[in-house]
Design a protein around this nucleic acid. Structure first.
Lengths: 327, 327
DNA sequence: CTGAAAGCGCTTACAG
DNA sequence: CTGAAAGCGCTTACAG
């Protein structure tokens, strides 16, 4: 059996209350007792049971993180930063990959509540998750509106879409097409599309957006891209709403012998570390993933401290245009 | 306050024992009582506290996962599969990013033990982690030897290295250089290097390996690659031990106006989904990440069930050569 | 078929 | 400065 606090108490010849005190460094204890207790803990190889502590304290110092999937470089990087920052605050992370499926999101959320997490950071596309939302349960959403009361942290999608579109225009593109996710999802990413449409109109062009599903099915993405090329023979600029799609666009363009950037210019979105290494030639709008993580955690920690007023309901972090050879 | 089992009992007019029974579906209970209890749970919006259950059961159904960082596509994908498969077995995952730092690995491991995880899957480069290892505590290592008793799951690194080297030879490369991690780390990945060296020798060539640190510092990788090109002007084939390094090699080659594949052929390693999408032209050795995850979990679950004998101490899963335009 | 009691491993008033 | 007692929210023998 694992040694318990009583075993330590016995070994040190004190009461379990005293052991608990030195463990938590609370109250007055003589140095001698302290030393004895520490020695006993070492000797019997004692490791405190955080389950029991949490049960009493009603604080687990665990947060739940729901992302679509960490294999996607954006979410993988976000998960990395969120976990790292949490660790620096003494918080732990229960990881959940929802694959954008609402049924999974709901199950995960219930699981997290059963495990008494102190809060949840959620990157999800489905509002259904709100069924479980309780008044004053700490939740922060990344890049997606969940409800009126849940703070959202994201980057300046409108500015990103604007910069991307303006760059393509500036570079002389005449037929610029946009690829984005389903518009029904109420995500700030819709602002990328909005910006694209606004800028196009301002410049007397007709905006055309192709919608890809959010199923992570590469085959479907490829088919959509083929359709785009087939239907839009004059296309000379594409602004894709993420780098993976942009990469697929570039691959398909190569197949069709369209030379990048002379015949076709491509701009992606996200600018992850991995994207920068694997596809440095792609021009992209970089999101400040570390800042998004930091901000989301700051807000979540405030909620956990019970501060539900004065929360910034929407935080918009700056994006950076990174020009590569694809434009 | 959150409703407890006693609140349910009161609402349903039964004892807390009975509520517990319907919750766990154990023992005989009349259908009528069951219905009453379920109704009461719905009414007061009851969510069982898994902390309390775990405290009693001495089982949390949580496993710890220590990876270097999920922002790396290989580990991000591994984390995704591990978490997904765990979820299908009713297990949850506490995520830890060690950034390959031994001090963090140790802290994380202690944290996991305090949280009473049922087991740990660890992808780490440091044997120090074994300081905390207790007899019969469930641990599985991925791709790295931790101790004689800890099962390791990985892919066939020797075969991967062999296939990569043989391909470059077959394609006519005369000066093939290998890039790998520090040899001190006792990882099965050393076998990639061993295979490269063996095949080179068999073919009367002199193997030359450049070692990169495992610090995730891109700048250091770039510098090493520059050094390689400077020192090895005749190089016409490079086998890199992961796809990110291979990508950096290709980028540097481009800068130096070395045409791929005619003047330089490059083979990477890992073959992640993300790599396939962002850099499909890279020839690579693909690891079966989903299978690695599945196998590691199978073994871990056996350990959790107390089966520590007859464990496969080393599992070697098959790799696949994926030929792209870089060779 | 159902309930009262003890206990999982902790912490914190309350006394002394 | 230290300890006995109660309790966090559950589950499981043990009785009936």
């Amino acid at each position: 059996m694992k040694p318990s606090i009583d075993d330590v108490a016995e070994a040190a010849g004190v009461s379990r209350t005293t052991v608990s005190r030195v463990l938590n460094n609370r109250g007055y204890i003589s140095q001698k007792t302290k030393d004895n207790v520490y020695k006993a803990m070492k000797e019997i190889n004692y490791i405190p049971n955080d389950l029991a502590r949490s049960l009493f304290n009603k604080r687990t110092h665990i947060i739940g993180l729901i992302v679509p999937k960490t294999s996607n470089p954006f979410f993988g990087e976000l998960a990395f930063h969120i976990e790292s920052i949490c660790a620096s605050f003494g918080f732990k992370v229960l990881l959940c990959n929802s694959v954008n499926r609402m049924d999974k999101e709901e199950k995960y959320l219930e699981m997290l509540l059963r495990n008494q997490v102190d809060g949840v950071i959620v990157v999800t596309y489905n509002r259904g998750i709100m069924n479980y939302h309780r008044e004053n349960f700490p939740v922060v959403a990344v890049d997606h509106y969940l409800s009126e009361k849940i703070p959202v942290v994201g980057s300046d999608n409108y500015d990103g879409g604007k910069q991307a579109t303006e760059l393509l225009l500036k570079k002389g593109c005449r037929h610029i097409i946009h690829i984005n996710g389903p518009i029904e999802l109420e995500t700030p990413a819709n602002l990328r599309r909005k910006a694209y449409e606004d800028i196009m109109m301002e410049n007397g062009r007709t905006p055309i957006t192709y919608e890809v599903s959010n199923t992570f099915d590469q085959q479907i993405h490829r088919e959509l891209i083929c359709k785009l090329f087939d239907e839009q023979p004059e296309v000379d600029g594409i602004f894709a709403s993420d780098d993976l799609i942009a990469a697929s666009v570039m691959a398909e363009a190569k197949k069709r012998n369209k030379v990048i950037p002379s015949q076709l210019k491509v701009v992606g979105y996200d600018g992850t570390e991995t994207g920068q290494i694997l596809l440095p030639e792609l021009t992209t709008i970089q999101q400040p993933i570390d800042l998004i993580a930091k901000t989301a955690i700051d807000i979540l920690l405030k909620e956990i401290e019970g501060e539900f007023n004065d929360l910034p309901l929407e935080t918009c972090l700056p994006v950076t245009l990174i020009e590569g050879g694809s434009t």
